[in-house]
Design a protein around this nucleic acid. Structure first.
Lengths: 136, 136
DNA sequence: GCGTAAGCCTATCTAGTAGATAGGAATGAT
DNA sequence: ATCATTCCTATCTACTAGATAGGCTTACGC
């Protein structure tokens, strides 16, 4: 029930890339636009590329672009790419938690919580989110 | 999206108290039953009492009991008593997170996630959970 | 009363890790 | 060749979750 800075940065960066689609955006540009430490962001972008969400290009005029249409990338995809499981109990997947005695039923609660989170993040696409604009 | 040991312990302890209702249960008994470090548990029980969820009694034959019927205590009550907000972004409440530029719409996502979690934990009572038994 | 068993409370320790940084190697365009 | 950029690894630092220790306070029995 804690969204890490890493996760938050990742989604923000992806949305910034979405806004420039299909142009390539430099890591430095993203860092400035969303006020993210550059070195930290580079590691995050690497994860996103390895997860198949971003395409990267090196050298002069290099940068990052979405590997798939914004309509086909959900917030859940991004969160999982950088943070692993959506919900964890003491660092372990919810399904891995086992309880005994009076607490036996607790397992079901954590699983239900995870499914509730999935219900939200797996249905919000970057395309949807990028249509929401800051009102002046 | 991380359930801390403290939160997990708190719910387990509450369920153990529920099972003995309305008898008083000693902290040491709870610790043994749910395999929770005693000293750590004592701090948690203190929080639960201060939140008005537990009644405590000192001295010989002292212990803890539910301050309200199990039907009127939800998992959400317990989580909030020991952990503060249900969902946080980089340690801050979801409502406190502000975004600019392309990431503006992200705020709504985190809020929706928190509401989804609330929908689960605020409707599961200790009474319901305590009816789920371990099958032999 | 006095002793004992329990909860109450504060201070503290420790280890893990989130967050951030640095520096160089690989790559691609001009 | 050179420069700009991504790629990758190693590392640092500060925070805090998790756990511990020890003394204080309350309640009951004798």
């Amino acid at each position: 029930m804690y969204v890490s800075a890493r996760t938050d940065y990742a989604v923000r960066a992806m949305l910034s890339v979405t806004a420039e689609h299909p142009r390539l955006v430099k890591a430095a540009t993203l860092a400035a636009a969303q006020e993210i430490p550059l070195s930290f962001l580079q590691g995050i972008l690497l994860d996103l590329r390895r997860a198949g969400l971003l395409h990267s290009h090196r050298g002069v005029d290099g940068g990052y672009a979405l590997a798939r249409p914004a309509e086909e990338i959900t917030v859940g995809d991004v969160v999982r790419a950088v943070g692993g499981a959506l919900a964890t109990v003491r660092g372990l997947p919810t399904t891995h938690a086992t309880y005994h005695g009076a607490a036996f039923g607790l397992h079901d609660v954590w699983v239900a919580v995870e499914e509730a989170i999935e219900g939200v993040v797996d249905h919000k696409t970057l395309a949807e989110l990028s249509t929401i604009k800051e009102s002046a």
